[in-house]
Design a protein around this nucleic acid. Sequence first.
DNA 1: CAGGCTCGTGGGAACGTCCCCGCAACACTG
DNA 2: CAGTGTTGCGGGGACGTTCCCACGAGCCTG
Lengths: 327, 327
Amino acid sequence: MTTIYDVAEYCGVSVSTVSRAIAAPDMVRQSTRRRVLEAVDKLGYQPNRVARALSTGRTRSIGFVVPSLANPFFPRVLKAAQGAARSLDFAVLVGDTDEDPDAEAELITTMGRQVDGVVVCAPRLADKDILRLAREVKIVCVNRPVRGVPGVLMDSAAGVSEAARYLHGLGHQRFVYVNGPERSWSNGERRGALGAEAERLGFEVHELGPVSAKFEDGVALAPEIARMGVSAVMAYNDLIALGVLAGLRQTGVEVPGQISVVGVDDIMMAAMSTPALSTVSVAKDEAGAAAVELLLEVLEGERRGPARTLRCPPTFVRRQSTGPAPA
Amino acid sequence: MTTIYDVAEYCGVSVSTVSRAIAAPDMVRQSTRRRVLEAVDKLGYQPNRVARALSTGRTRSIGFVVPSLANPFFPRVLKAAQGAARSLDFAVLVGDTDEDPDAEAELITTMGRQVDGVVVCAPRLADKDILRLAREVKIVCVNRPVRGVPGVLMDSAAGVSEAARYLHGLGHQRFVYVNGPERSWSNGERRGALGAEAERLGFEVHELGPVSAKFEDGVALAPEIARMGVSAVMAYNDLIALGVLAGLRQTGVEVPGQISVVGVDDIMMAAMSTPALSTVSVAKDEAGAAAVELLLEVLEGERRGPARTLRCPPTFVRRQSTGPAPA
DNA sequence: CAGGCTCGTGGGAACGTCCCCGCAACACTG
DNA sequence: CAGTGTTGCGGGGACGTTCCCACGAGCCTG
């Protein structure tokens, strides 16, 4: 392991000069700088990040905390976040809370001590707990608006509205919304958007749930949906929607012939079902990248002013699970 | 941020004593140890991991490199690895190579400098490159046997054999195997297992591919499969199998009535398709945990002796995509 | 030409921990 | 009682950086 001392000795300057040649190019003479960089190259010197971290107090790494990596939604966000971080020379530590709020708090605190900041995805903690943690460690929330904490929100409301208008345009008059986790911000958004559109256009919306937002929930609900006499199902997310699809098929209901089904998220599987699931595609990649950029911005400029909240717009993706309302 | 100095001052001992009270309990008197630990508690002291790392040369963190987090297979392994690491007080840095061998090499090297070791999942690099990297950084491979490099293999061969016997028992005589990535170790295993069973029991195996192992590959191959006159499809993985399922449906072929389909991996979606996909369930959780345990073992005891290779056994999961051969 | 700049550089403290070394106090041994 | 251990603890160097301060050389200004 070659150190800054080796480089300094090699080209007969002090370590300070080497350090500067690398970090502050215009504080050393051009010619010495060149000499140093050549030596760096020749000796294959790479700064020791740990030592740098100890000295500067910055680790150049961030934490990324998710409820569960088993939920196909989060790995996508993580992938984007990791890519963005990497291109800015930041490392990403990952933490999986298994949907447990206590584990989440614990993870944020312990991680907080070895990273510069933490991106917390869809936190299960109460607002006040997040605020408390945010005083100790720099936090950016994803899909959870917390006053005073910077965040990135993957909008879905606009997409749900669009889907609703589309279905209404196809003649649908009786909808059912399947609620996801009760205290989820996203659920409120989606439910609200559908309700608003119903009011505006004058169609009916029944409700089911809340459920935990798994495939099995959708399967279990399908028979009841079949009995409700609705022609359109808007589910909290794709997992539920795919479950409904499977359940309806078992029940002998045709999709989209008798009932149209729409999900939210646009996870990989949505494109793989038969019929392929129409869904509100949420900006996972943009949000993942935006979250780390926002976090770095927070770290960089100790900017005062209110915490920023970014919103990434959704798009409605029409596939085969939606069609004209039955006569 | 309270340091070891604060604790030392608080209870009137030297920093050495505090350090020992924490790390080497039996090198200090019981009574002083208690005093120190009380002070630690009261002051809320937490060792600075960065300083510790600089001093000891161990970061207590490991890297986890995957071809792509977008492939639903890897997040599962990551989840397990993270859990195991966490319980041993190790942090996990994640790296996504986007299936690019060069990025993989780059990632392993750069990560290698800031972690104690790296778990590399299904590396795309050539053996010799892995061996070269392994001289610089401690590596454990997952799903890739490299002589001289410790590894964890998720066995699938035994599961494929079992599936083959099961199908043969149901009367199937003409199989097709869809090859995955050409140079993949897993592909050789699976293809070989099916071939061996064919020889033993005397059934036919045709082959298709290699393909890149995506859903679309399966869809694209379905018409050809329908024309081949086979009654059983064994796909390299679930993604392909699910594609075949969807493709066959489009072609009007009944599954499992006319053709049975089996995948490998047991990703989440396998249980969600209609019909639900029979598959060889590979030990993702065990392997993820085993990989970090093996890595820590390597770090711990600078054990000589040959590099260990662990194997995690698969299980064949019968769902609805397999049935008796048509008459 | 004395005083002030700027520029480029070196010296060395600091970051927080671990760990080697040394030393005092005491107990045991023969 | 001298010699030899053992036990418990403190001092201080080392890990590899960054960064503040100081300092000499050269240049400008009045």
